[in-house]
């Protein structure tokens, strides 16, 4: 079973069209040139993959790949 990080990385690569090497725990979505609509779609993809609901106020705080992984760990 792949780790949460691996799954999040795969979604980020797919949604933002970036290379795998660019994505690590410290990477911020801003660094990957994600705009507000990219973030909305990214959050939707994470919700679907991990079967969770991420309220807007929480979503706004998730600014890095690591923050997404931590949030998923805490809320799964």
């Amino acid at each position: 079973m792949s780790s949460i990080f691996e799954k999040v990385k795969a979604i980020v690569v797919e949604q933002l069209g970036v290379d795998e090497e660019e994505v690590n725990m410290e990477t911020s979505f801003e660094d990957l040139n994600a705009d507000s609509l990219d973030i909305v779609e990214l959050v939707m993809a994470l919700e679907e993959e991990f079967d969770i609901e991420i309220p807007d106020e929480d979503a706004e705080k998730i600014k890095t790949v690591g923050a997404a992984v931590d949030y998923i760990k805490e809320n799964q």
């Binding site: 507000s36 609509l37 909305v40 779609e41 939707m44 807007d56």
Partner: peptide, 10 residues
């Protein structure tokens, strides 16, 4: 806009 966008994509 954000809510409508989410709905629309889905």
């Amino acid at each position: 806009g954000k809510e409508v966008y989410k709905f629309a994509v889905r």
